[in-house]
């Protein structure tokens, strides 16, 4: 059995979500190969080759894949699954359940006439997976009868695979072989215009060890630097509830929840967040949850390990002062 993991990257760095996906692939059992499709992405391919458990890296370095255009990457994956590049034959194709993977995998699956499975949180066996439904209010165990399983992986449910920063990968003999592969042509339907990314010196939200999130209680975007300072003291990332994003306090990429990002840090601080089901869906697997809210009835307190019923504009500065001691 060969499993193809689609690397998520920005041509410079491999996204950590790829490492969680490799772990999930390892649990399926079989040879794990990684596809790196990009432009000037040799560094990413090198990084992928050093991931523990990866036996081969396909790299397609071509202008077509400079940006993650779903149609182009999907055509390449289809060509690989159909036997291009030595006709390996893959039993599974897996990608992280990020906006990249969630757009890509169903598209590839439909090209191959496969019913894909989204957002798996557990690998039971090579055909059987568990996934959350209804915003995580139920878990569905499903078995696929497809010849090729196409899956997106809930990255927070799987550990990071060891990579170049881990000791094992200093042994060159363990690095995977890297092989180039031809491109599969480009669509002329889609033209990339630009990306406007929120620059941040902080850790990436979905892989941060600490997340400090603000909700409607923050009152305005101008108050978010309060949380940023706290996040910096704790070495964490800043997130937000849907209410805060809808109100325009912060950009969309801050959103944690059912339809935003799913996070599971060691410490999640919910500040001025009431705790709607849709928000809980994105953070309730965090190891420790702290809630700060001036409404003692807020549902967030029902899932918090530590609750503090206090005005956040009093509590957060006090917390900052205490951490500075």
């Amino acid at each position: 059995m060969n499993i193809l993991v689609i690397a998520e990257h920005d041509n410079a760095d491999l996204a950590p979500a790829t490492l969680n996906t490799v772990t999930a692939a390892g649990q399926v059992g079989g040879d794990v190969h990684v596809l790196v499709a990009g432009q000037d992405c040799a560094g990413v391919a090198d990084a992928a080759a050093k991931i523990a458990g990866v036996s081969k890296v396909w790299v397609c370095d071509c202008a077509t894949y400079a940006h993650e255009i779903t149609e182009n990457t999907a055509a390449l994956i289809q060509s690989i699954v159909n036997g291009k590049g030595d006709g390996k034959g893959y039993s599974h194709v897996m990608a992280p359940a990020s906006t990249f993977g969630k757009a890509l995998i169903p598209y590839v699956a439909a090209l191959c006439d496969v019913q894909s499975i989204s957002d798996i949180s557990e690998v039971v066996d090579a055909d059987t997976f568990v996934r959350p439904i209804y915003a995580g209010n139920a878990l569905s165990k499903v078995k696929s009868s497809e010849a090729v399983k196409m899956l997106t992986v809930r990255t927070t449910a799987f550990e990071l695979a060891d990579d170049a920063s881990a000791d094992q990968s200093t042994d060159q003999n363990k690095w995977a072989e890297i092989e180039s592969i031809d491109d599969a042509g480009a669509t002329n339907w889609v033209q990339f215009i630009e990306q406007s990314l929120s620059p941040s010196e902080r850790p990436e939200l979905t892989s941060a060890r600490v997340v400090v999130s603000g909700g409607r209680g923050m009152q305005s975007g101008e108050n978010f630097p309060l949380l940023e300072k706290l996040a910096d003291q704790l070495g964490g990332a800043v997130g937000a509830s849907r209410a805060a994003v809808d109100a325009g306090f912060v950009p969309n990429d801050y959103q944690v929840g059912q339809t935003g990002k799913v996070v599971a840090p060691d410490l999640y601080l919910a500040v001025g967040i009431s705790g709607a089901i849709q928000h809980l869906a994105g953070m309730k697997d965090s190891k420790v949850i702290v809630a700060i809210n001036n409404d003692e009835e807020a549902p967030i307190f029902q899932v918090a390990d530590y609750g503090w019923n206090e005005d956040l504009f009093v509590a957060v500065p006090a917390l900052q002062a205490e951490l500075e001691k």
């Binding site: 920005d10 940006h67 630009e194 406007s196 990314l197 990429d253 990002k261």
Partner: peptide, 9 residues
């Protein structure tokens, strides 16, 4: 709306 921000196509 993508994980890293916004993308125009």
């Amino acid at each position: 709306e993508i994980d890293a921000g916004l993308e125009k196509l």
